[in-house]
Design a protein around this nucleic acid. Structure first.
Length: 274
DNA sequence: ATGGCGCGTCAAACGCGA
């Protein structure tokens, strides 16, 4: 099974890129972030025609997450707090509480895996309440990870964590400690979560420098390969037992009207005898 | 590094992202 995560920076602006990719690359599960649209503004028919079940958690203007799956989706949950129903539009007023997390169980004949699409707050500037809300989101996520770990099941928590974990995740770490992405508090929050026993799929297969998932639109970042690694797939130990490969789809950043992020993927076998 | 990019909203600049 192939699972990918992609911050699309507007689903409507990137729908043709998404369909073009999935038409030639039959990824089984796709976790999307930054839909930047409400559910009713999104036409999912092209994705359904490609064979995907679609679970949307949209929001006006900002944020928004989704799960696409070629297998049935069960037990869909909206928000880190685990609401089992899609919140009403007017409830999705606080962008730091809502439309940043959607979770579901992917059910196949080979077994099941719980997946989540995560869009952590950027958190800048660090002297604002945005930074505090980023930390609060990470605390909520950490508590949820702790609960999930008790189940000893296969799960994949993937998305845009908006945190630089170590000095491989940017060309230079100079100055990042004063930014919400590299602030010691952000780094400690994500590292603490991972230390509960999660496996950072990309780093199993790619241990060196220069592996990025984001290149800013500004300052010629793509042309200068001035990227960041902030999109990750974090696996439970039971899921990581079946991890076979991982990678980033760097070439997609070079497309016309590309998202500033590229998909990050991993290959899993669910049947441990396979 | 942050004006310089790109998106949504709303109908002109502005908020936001990272």
């Amino acid at each position: 099974m192939r699972i990918a995560t992609w911050n699309v920076n507007s689903l409507r602006a990137r729908l043709s890129h998404l369909c073009h990719w999935l038409n030639k690359d039959k990824v089984d599960v796709v976790l999307l972030q930054e839909l930047k649209a409400q559910n009713h503004q999104i036409d999912t028919s092209a994705l359904e025609d490609l064979g995907y079940n679609v679970a949307l958690f949209g929001q006006k203007s900002w944020n928004g997450v989704a799960i696409l799956s070629r297998f049935p989706l069960e037990d869909i949950r909206y928000g880190v707090e685990g609401a089992e129903a899609l919140p009403e539009e007017e409830e999705v007023a606080d962008p730091y509480v809502h439309a940043r997390y959607i979770e579901a169980v992917v059910s196949t004949s080979q077994g099941i895996v719980r997946v989540a699409s995560i869009y952590a707050p950027n958190g800048n500037p660090i002297d604002s309440d945005k930074f505090d809300k980023k930390q609060r989101f990470m605390e909520q996520l950490d508590a949820h990870v702790a609960a999930l770990m008790q189940e000893e099941e296969k799960f994949v928590l993937a998305g845009d964590y908006n945190v630089l974990l170590d000095d491989r995740d940017a060309p230079s770490m100079v100055g990042w400690e004063k930014d919400a992405l590299g602030h010691p508090q952000s780094v400690a929050a994500l590292r603490g979560m991972i230390h509960r026993g999660l496996v950072d799929a990309l780093r199993v297969h790619h241990t060196g420098t220069g592996l990025y998932s984001f290149w800013d639109y500004q300052g010629g970042a793509w042309q200068r390969d001035n990227g960041l690694l902030i999109d990750r797939l974090l696996l439970s130990p039971q899921a990581a037992d079946g991890l076979r490969a991982s990678g980033v789809m760097k070439q997609m950043r070079g497309q016309k009207q590309a998202s500033d992020h590229v998909p990050v993927w991993c290959q899993l076998v669910l049947d441990k005898d396979a």
